[in-house]
Simulated scan of single mutants.
Amino acid sequence: MARAGLTADRLTRAAAEMADEVGFENVTVSALARRFGVKDASLYSHIRNAHDLRTRVAVLALAELADLVASALAGRAGKDALVAFASAYRDYAKRHPGQYTATQMALDPDVAATSAAGRHAELTRAVLRGYGLGEPHETDAVRFMHSTFHGYVSLERAGAFHGHPRGVDASWSRALDAVDTALRNWPD
């Protein structure tokens, strides 16, 4: 019998918190059931399986990140928009490491179509409008930006930049300067 008060939304939010605490890869139905003090079977009336649970966390995280980026972009253009977008992205990854990992999950096409995944591309393209790139350059630039931000954030989270006298924030700022320069001088 399911414990009163359990809902798919409550379980998803608890799983998202768990992802930040123990890592997205460690979010399981059993671990979540233990957190609520119930048997695994009690959760299956709200979620289908571990994949469904992780997908729900990914969808939640994508929506939260899109909201933060959209808010950061409001009223900005050009390099200011680029820096605001990138900073919101990096800050989210720092504050919510497990949920950030969830945003990288490959979603089933039907789930992706109804999630905030499309908003991320739209927000990135909004930044790029300030650089006047047309297709196919805009698609290439979207991929370039995502690769740069994700790569930097992933290396930073893994501790790859520790032990060097140059601060990671200073390098981040220079990386954004380089992205801005690349976008302003995009090759034909």
Rank of each mutant, 00 (worst) to 15 (best):
V59I: 11
L60Y: 10
L60F: 08
L60I: 05
A61R: 11
A61H: 09
A63E: 14
E64D: 14
E64R: 12
A66N: 04
A66V: 05
L68P: 00
V69Q: 10
V69C: 06
A70Y: 00
S71H: 09
S71E: 15
A72L: 07
L73G: 09
L73I: 02
A74K: 14
G75E: 10
R76S: 09
A77T: 15
G78E: 09
K79F: 07
D80Q: 13
D80P: 02
D80S: 13
A81N: 10
L82T: 02
V83T: 04
A84V: 02
F85T: 01
F85G: 03
A86E: 05
S87W: 11
S87L: 06
A88D: 05
R90E: 05
Y92L: 01
A93V: 02
A93D: 01
A93S: 13
R95P: 01
A102P: 02
A102W: 08
T103M: 06
T103F: 03
T103H: 06
Q104R: 15
M105R: 15
M105H: 09
M105P: 00
A106L: 13
A106P: 05
A106R: 15
D108G: 02
D108M: 12
V111K: 12
V111H: 07
V111Y: 07
V111P: 10
A113C: 07
S115F: 00
A116I: 07
A116R: 03
G118N: 09
R119H: 08
R119I: 06
H120Y: 09
H120W: 12
H120K: 11
A121D: 14
A121Y: 05
E122R: 12
E122S: 13
T124D: 04
T124Q: 12
T124L: 14
R125A: 13
R125F: 05
A126T: 14
A126C: 04
A126L: 14
V127Q: 12
R129Y: 05
R129N: 11
R129G: 11
G130L: 12
Y131C: 03
Y131D: 03
G132I: 09
G132D: 09
L133F: 09
G134F: 07
E135L: 04
E135M: 07
P136R: 06
D140M: 15
D140K: 13
F144M: 11
H146M: 10
H150I: 06
G151T: 07
V153K: 04
V153I: 12
S154N: 09
R157D: 11
A158V: 01
A160Y: 03
F161A: 11
F161N: 06
H162S: 14
P165V: 10
P165K: 01
P165C: 07
R166T: 15
R166P: 00
D169G: 11
D169M: 03
S173R: 14
S173V: 03
A175I: 10
L176K: 02
L176N: 02
V179T: 08
D180S: 06
T181K: 08
A182P: 00
L183Q: 05
